[in-house]
Design a protein around this nucleic acid. Structure first.
Lengths: 170, 170
DNA sequence: ATTTCCGTGTCAGATGTCTGACACGAGGCA
DNA sequence: TGCCTCGTGTCAGACATCTGACACGGAAAT
């Protein structure tokens, strides 16, 4: 329909490209996960739990970029499904540490392989140096975004080396 | 709560980092857009329309990474709001070319400035070469993901010239 | 010791988005 | 010409997620 072809600058916006890449990745993951009867959030939760056993519902939520409430329904489903267990009472505070069951671990194994294949495909055509570069750049973006996002403006926490507004770059 | 500190490999997964960055960007955008009474999808639609006037509902949907149905409700709201106009009848086929009204353009202008500031913040600490590198890498990822996703097996013309850490630039 | 503050789990409702299905117009092809 | 495929707009329902609000436990501040 349209054909003005004026690729104004969407193709040059890192923000748009970021969203596009993320969307493509999600779609690709959904595609390989669907045959396994799993959703992306589903998988994320399991993977998180495998790598950091004992995470609480809220922590899981933060790790999967959803709200506590959303993660809670998912966790309940996973518990019902027998993939995850949570103690009836909190060992400390109110947080209930969740853990993978053998069954959950098996589930994850298949899903993990599928997802890994997607990631491999995504990285095809990229040199090792480029991948390293991407890692560094993405971390920098995340950090910069978070620093200024919440109120204060200067941010002194220190974690970041290249935090400044300066374009010092390397 | 947890303390095992075993940063297994989430911090090394490009997929996770991609999701994290995208999430952080979205959050930052929502934050600056909220005072203007706009959502991210809202803004995306307006921006798309500004850069490619006459896009149809379906095209807009693809550009904003939502379904036609979702974009349609948004478009109806924008029309009701007086930011967008669509002809009552389709000039050709069934597609209705949408266009920004002066009011929509004004709305967008403020939003665009806000969003641009977020993007600038995100890019702070990155050299020009790194930004170029990021552009190239993200495009490669998107391409690789899409190529293998739907049927064909090999594809990928490359795009990766082994430029390394943001050196080539162009 | 008391107060204050933060994080957590949970309930309820509202909202946005998606899936599924339908009819229509345009273009390619036999 | 007729057929078939593709893309489009649209309706309706189902689903997932989010926002808002509440009570509780622990740790720091007073």
């Amino acid at each position: 329909m349209n054909q003005d072809g004026s690729g104004v600058d969407l193709d040059k916006s890192l923000g748009y490209l970021l969203k596009e890449a993320s969307s493509a990745l999600r779609a690709a993951m959904e595609e390989v996960l669907r045959p396994l009867g799993m959703t992306v959030t589903h998988y994320s939760c399991l993977e998180l739990l495998a790598q950091r056993p004992g995470l609480s519902n809220s922590e899981l939520a933060r790790g999967a970029f959803v709200t506590r409430q959303s993660m809670n329904v998912l966790l309940q489903a996973l518990e019902r499904d027998g993939s995850v267990t949570r103690p009836a009472a909190a060992p400390v505070g109110k947080a209930l540490p969740a853990r993978l069951t053998p069954r959950g671990r098996r589930s994850l194994e298949k899903a993990s392989a599928a997802v890994r294949s997607v990631e491999v495909r995504m990285l095809a055509g990229l040199s090792g140096a480029e991948q390293e570069s991407a890692l560094r750049i993405l971390r920098s973006m995340i950090h910069s975004l978070r620093d200024g996002g919440d109120g204060s403006h200067d941010g002194d926490d220190g974690g970041a080396d290249g935090g400044g507004t300066g374009s010092t770059g390397a």
